[in-house]
């Protein structure tokens, strides 16, 4: 058997790698976080290997519920106070907008961001916190939900996106 034929035979035996999907979640707004989690879970339902990279305000999607004030520096603390609760990018009305949208979601049978996040974890979606954002905001691993993956950076995200058939920045 020639080396080429042997290589062919080996390649046949290799289990095809799953297609990859990468989502960059850069916003904590409800109307951004929602589609991120909808697409992440649906990608997993398509049998894809899905990774969501949470950066800047997007990292707040991974914040443990009821975590309160975080950070050491007064500026980090202030940012954590003013970023409590997901806002709407438009028609926020001081928190009334997201409340109305969440209530409508419940009435219409739309799974919440929280529910989708739990489903995503069950479906093996990887949740990558951005290390730089954690340092910037003074967030510790314990401030993030259980099951979030090891923090990573732009390099890891680019390496993954180079191989992915779907990469979206939301």
């Amino acid at each position: 058997m020639t080396a080429e034929a042997m290589a062919d035979r080996t390649s046949e035996e290799v289990i095809p790698e799953k297609e990859k999907m990468v989502l960059i979640a850069a916003s904590g707004d409800l109307d951004k976080a929602w589609p991120v989690m909808i697409l992440a879970t649906t990608g997993a339902a398509y049998g894809m290997d899905v990774t969501v990279f949470f950066t800047f305000w997007g990292l707040h999607i991974l914040r443990r519920p009821g975590i309160g004030i975080t950070g050491e520096d007064w500026r980090q603390k202030m940012l954590s106070v003013f970023s409590q609760g997901a806002k709407l990018s438009q028609l926020n009305f001081g928190g009334m907008g997201p409340k109305m949208m969440k209530d409508l979601g419940d009435e219409k049978g739309v799974a919440s961001v929280q529910e989708l996040l739990e489903l995503a974890q069950g479906m093996g979606v990887k949740l990558w916190p951005c290390q730089m954002t954690m340092d910037l905001m003074g967030l510790e691993r314990d401030d993030l939900i259980d099951g979030s993956d090891e923090p990573a950076g732009a390099g890891s995200a680019i390496s993954l996106m180079k191989e992915a058939s779907i990469s979206l920045f939301i």
Binding site: T41, T42, A44, A45, Y46, K108, V110, A111
Partner: peptide
């Protein structure tokens, strides 16, 4: 609602 039917069938 979307995306639950797809998640359920999968």
């Amino acid at each position: 609602q979307c995306p639950m039917p797809v998640l359920k069938i999968s």
